[in-house]
Write a protein that binds this DNA or RNA. Structure first.
Lengths: 234, 234
DNA sequence: ATGAAACCTTGACCCCCGTCAAGTTTTGGC
DNA sequence: GCCAAAACTTGACGGGGGTCAAGGTTTCAT
């Protein structure tokens, strides 16, 4: 189990848990009475910045739903290097992998700032899946999205040059946010580990892109894409 | 839709389809009458070696269950290079990604030899998921396995050296087959694209491993692991 | 507000490995 | 069983980018 230094337990009013459930795509299609049934089976937990929510090797506590704040999921490679897998935002959930396999977690979850979560235990979640099959379809949809995204990511790291990966990351982010001015959601170090390069290379490539007139770096985290077409030609 | 040169349709006796369903983990827990209900909603299809079963950009036909033969799933990167995602064997299924997202396929499926499949259309499959929620749990389990495997793969390609990736691939294969003598399931080219390197590098590294006394190459595809511990130390 | 810790940038070095090429072996369709 | 096509091996070469180092900047806990 996670070594909980001091994570607030049970400070969850029904009000807060209600919000928690109602913002999650996998539950928010249910009717009010079904929702309150589910709410009864969740607990609120809060973690301070930097706190580990679960460890590789932990057995599954259950399903974690992010209510406020952001959570970083990463894994350690066999040689001990950290790779950032993804960042969870409010409405996202995690903990699922070990929910269905009876295996231990194979990744780490860490609070990137103060985080509030709703937690549902494994058995209750599985019960709800059987009772309300529509939830399963939602979760299946979410899984298949994630699988597609992860496979795409793996293909990119395997086949594209570093320039291309960085350019595509920026392009994806811009598309996701619907804006050519974007704010990087993480440090160079984390970004580097996510796309399979080094922080130094990121700095250098971004400087190159700026010299070429494709982007403008307004601050370390703020980037404006000036010429998307050129950027995507590598 | 896929350009079907000549793939046998409807040559599926009920007998054959029954076998098809009964070997698939996602269905084989059902009782006989439920199974025959499902069998009624599947069609048999066969494809010759090299034939494309579905294309990137195809809309989903449904769920494909491999009955005989092997199927190679690959994707083309933005820059046009091929990456092998995975190889399907009898009992595996595919086509799922677009089943839940209403999106087009983002990968290719190709018959590696003569292949026999059972196909179920999208609507029928979703109906069965709602009718028999236990199937959903099975599919969720399968998805979460695959997600875990793909994330692990992405982390490896991102963080490990080429030597390590090749060594780990061999080690994984040996563990999967429970034998230190393994037969590579694919060509050097496909293996290279799978683990993010070039065929030449694979040849060279395997030669190095053999020189170091860690493996023995009995033939191009037959490899015996002599010193697993040394191999995993890179 | 302030100092320490974390983060970012830039330079120098150099090695890993991708690419091209040419010769050899294996595969599989007839 | 044959022969063309595909797959594999080995060599040579060069550049992309990882690593180490040093100095500047931002962040954040107190």
């Amino acid at each position: 189990m996670t070594d909980n230094g001091h994570c607030g337990h049970g400070d969850g009013s029904v009000e807060m848990q209600k919000m928690c459930i109602s913002i999650v795509p996998i539950f928010n299609h249910l009717n009010p009475s079904e929702m309150s049934e589910i709410i009864k089976h969740t607990n609120s937990v809060s973690h301070p910045r930097g706190h580990t929510i679960y460890h590789e090797g932990d057995t599954s506590d259950g399903l974690y739903i992010i209510h406020k704040g952001r959570v970083k999921i990463y894994r350690l490679s066999e040689s001990g290097k950290e790779q950032l897998v993804r960042i969870l935002e409010p409405g996202d959930f995690t903990g699922e992998l070990s929910l269905f396999n009876e295996t231990v977690h194979d990744a780490y979850a860490e609070a990137m700032g103060k985080v509030e979560l709703c937690v549902m235990n494994r058995e209750d979640f599985q019960t709800f899946l059987l009772k309300y099959p529509a939830i399963s379809l939602k979760v299946l949809g979410e899984f298949s999205n994630r699988l597609a995204k992860t496979e795409k990511q793996a293909a990119r790291i395997a086949m594209e040059t570093t320039d291309t990966r960085i350019a595509m990351y920026l392009a994806d982010l811009a598309e996701e946010r619907n804006s050519s001015r974007i704010k990087l959601p993480m440090t160079r170090k984390d970004l580097a580990s996510h796309i399979g390069t080094s922080p130094e290379t990121i700095s250098r490539k971004l400087a190159e892109f700026e010299d070429a007139g494709w982007i403008r770096q307004h601050s370390q985290r703020e980037i404006e894409i000036v010429d998307m077409d050129a950027l995507l030609l590598v």
